[in-house]
């Protein structure tokens, strides 16, 4: 029941984002523009009722941005939920493997070396950095073909610190004009989104979603411990490895195009658990859609609340999300999912 509601909310937020901005576009017109681009031969696209400026604002700028925010939110929430399940730790989040720190090194190196300033280039470098970090943490945490959750977390934290140090050093020693681009990336933003940015996270989200759907029951078994899951017929090592790789690729592809947006990956899965329980078959769809709605709405607020100034997205997610999560945490319901212990 919650899933259709969230899906409808997502559509409304996307449409609201498409119509809101300095160039006014009524919601009905925004809907017509979107439909006109998706379906060929719509009469209103050529009868002069919509201006080119409106069309550009909606189709070239606002919609890609809102979609990127939604996909980043969905991807980070899914990655966070997966991480929490496979490392048996409720503090786990998508960046725990040092993925964002690795992406940071990639992006900052790209900017500092001055190879170019294209955001797609920065994205590619960030993705490469994220993959390198993931591979390094994975190999470091592996011992006798077995990945111990605790060792994984510690290796991720240590390597993350190492990467952050490199990023800081590069930032402090580079030309002043580069610092803005670097901070922009590190704080996380979807404001530079174009249609070209959408392909990577969309593909990653689709692949991760399908893979996770087939393993949702196995993830439930993991809730009761590794040995118990093994006696229920789960190949725990293989499941853990494949889920980690899935979550890391997903996180890497989101970070590459939107920078290190914090908070969503940690909190949204917990909210989903508090609302529908720990069963992954119910919880994952709610987390994915909830993350999408939350980040798309946050981005809309981020660019309208203090217009024409933009509030950084990460700042807003924490300002809005933290009080809401704390309120949820204090309710009785949260005890039933183990938050109260």
């Amino acid at each position: 029941m919650l899933v259709p509601v969230l899906a409808a909310a997502l559509l409304i937020v996307l449409l609201l984002s498409a119509s809101t901005g300095t160039i006014p576009v009524p919601m009905a017109d925004a809907l017509r523009i979107v439909l006109g681009h998706l379906l060929p031969g719509m009469p209103w696209m050529s009868d002069g009722s919509l201006t080119t400026v409106q069309d550009n604002a909606v189709w070239q700028f606002r919609l890609p941005r809102a979609l990127l925010a939604a996909m980043a939110g969905a991807g980070l929430a899914l990655a966070g939920a997966l991480m929490q399940a496979v490392v048996h730790n409720s503090l786990a989040e998508p960046y725990i493997l040092g993925v964002s720190a690795g992406a940071g090194v990639g992006a900052v190196s790209f900017i500092v070396l001055g190879i170019g300033a294209s955001s797609l280039g920065i994205g590619a470098a960030a993705f490469l950095g994220a993959l390198t970090a993931t591979a390094a943490v994975y190999l470091l945490a592996r011992k006798n073909g077995h990945i111990a959750p605790q060792r994984l977390i510690l290796a991720g934290v240590a390597l993350g610190a190492l990467f952050s140090a490199v990023t800081s050093y590069l930032t402090i020693t580079t030309d002043a004009q580069n610092v803005f681009s670097i901070m922009f990336f590190l704080l996380g933003s979807v404001s530079a989104a174009t249609t070209g940015h959408l392909a990577l996270p969309a593909a990653a989200l689709l692949a991760a979603g399908i893979f996770t759907a087939f393993n949702a029951r196995a993830l439930n078994a993991l809730l009761v411990g590794d040995d118990a899951a093994a006696t229920l017929g789960i190949n725990v090592n293989r499941l853990r490895s494949s889920i980690l790789v899935t979550a890391a690729l997903l996180t890497g592809s989101v970070v590459a195009v939107s920078g290190g947006i914090g908070f969503v990956g940690l909190i949204v899965p917990h909210i989903a658990r508090i609302v529908v329980g720990a069963d992954h078959r119910r919880m994952l769809p709610v987390a994915v859609l909830g993350g999408a709605v939350f980040l798309a709405a946050s981005d809309l607020l981020a660019r309208t609340l203090a217009a024409p100034t933009e509030i950084p997205l990460g700042v807003l997610t924490a300002l809005v999300g933290a009080p809401f999560f704390l309120w949820l945490l204090r309710r009785d319901r949260s005890d039933s999912v183990g938050v109260g212990r």
């Binding site: 048996h88 439930n220 009761v224 411990g225 118990a228 329980g277 720990a278 999912v337 183990g338």
Partner: peptide, 17 residues
Amino acid sequence: AVMAQEHSEEFEIPVLD
């Protein structure tokens, strides 16, 4: 089927589940 002594409790789960 195995009934062991260990049980992990990081996340909560209802009895029927």
